[in-house]
């Protein structure tokens, strides 16, 4: 376990399709407490799988009920165009710190006109975004779409199999960050450090807890052959800096 408070850039709460596991806010808070996770960016699963507006309302309620532990992260569904544009404006005004997109779960392609427009809106609103990029090629498509953006973009769902692609993108665009959720590959963090100057400063710890085992997400970071300062950056420093921008 890390010996300093950790910030988690991706947690969820609510029902999950086909799973009867308890993924309630209470479970999330319990898991955070057990693992010294000081704060997490949380998203209601209703927003991913059912109705993004209802999900964002639930997210805001949870964050207001637990302001010391949870930051609200909204989700915007580009399939609900143009309503998703109004939702982005509304939630940005309410203090949402990040917007997340789930093309893989919602089954829409990244090269998608409503998505282009909504992320441009996020850029205007100056709200960072996180995008699920689970397949090879996803990062490349995204990179071409956001070349002139000002906001940080978090690549979510990158696995060792397409880490090389993510590294190539990050090397050429300083706006891209990497979430650690599936970076369980052997020596993944060392590879990022060696491949990208300042690369460690653009990695955020993301557990996808309580759906995924939190210790399984923490272990690879804590045990990586990095300096303690670098680990501290991944485990919270980078995310804090990103949110303060």
């Amino acid at each position: 376990m890390a010996t300093f408070p950790v910030f988690d850039s991706c947690t969820i709460f609510g029902p999950w399709p086909g799973r009867s596991a308890d993924l309630s806010v209470e479970t999330l808070l319990k898991v955070m407490s057990a693992n010294n996770i000081a704060r997490s960016l949380a998203t209601a699963t209703h927003g991913i799988f059912y109705d993004f507006r209802q999900g964002n309302t639930l997210t805001l309620e949870a964050a207001k009920a637990h302001p010391q532990q949870l930051y609200p992260v909204g989700t915007l569904d580009p399939r609900a165009y143009p309503a998703c544009l109004e939702e982005a404006e509304k939630r940005a005004a309410e203090g949402f710190r990040l917007f997340r997109f789930f093309p893989h779960y919602q089954q829409w392609p990244l090269n998608y006109a409503p998505f282009r427009e909504i992320i441009n809106k996020c850029n205007e609103l100056k709200v960072p975004i996180a995008v699920q990029v689970e397949d090879p090629g996803d990062c490349t498509v995204l990179a071409d779409m956001v070349a002139s953006f000002d906001i940080p973009l978090l690549l979510s769902g990158v696995r060792p199999g397409h880490l090389g692609e993510a590294l190539a993108i990050m090397k050429n665009n300083p706006r891209f960050y990497l979430e650690s959720t599936y970076l369980q590959g052997y020596a993944a963090f060392e590879t990022i450090r060696d491949a990208i100057p300042g690369g460690i400063e653009r990695v955020t710890f993301a557990s996808f807890s309580p759906l995924r085992y939190l210790s399984a997400a923490l272990g690879p970071v804590v045990s990586a052959k990095l300096t303690e300062d670098d680990k501290a950056l991944i485990l919270g420093g980078n995310l804090k800096r990103l949110l303060e921008k």
């Binding site: 590959g185 052997y186 085992y213 210790s215 399984a216 272990g219 045990s223």
Partner: peptide
């Protein structure tokens, strides 16, 4: 899955169960 994965992920899995 050592060789593909950092084994601490699997350790964490069983620790948190």
């Amino acid at each position: 899955d050592w060789g593909i994965c950092n084994p601490t992920a699997a350790m964490g899995m069983i620790k948190d169960s």
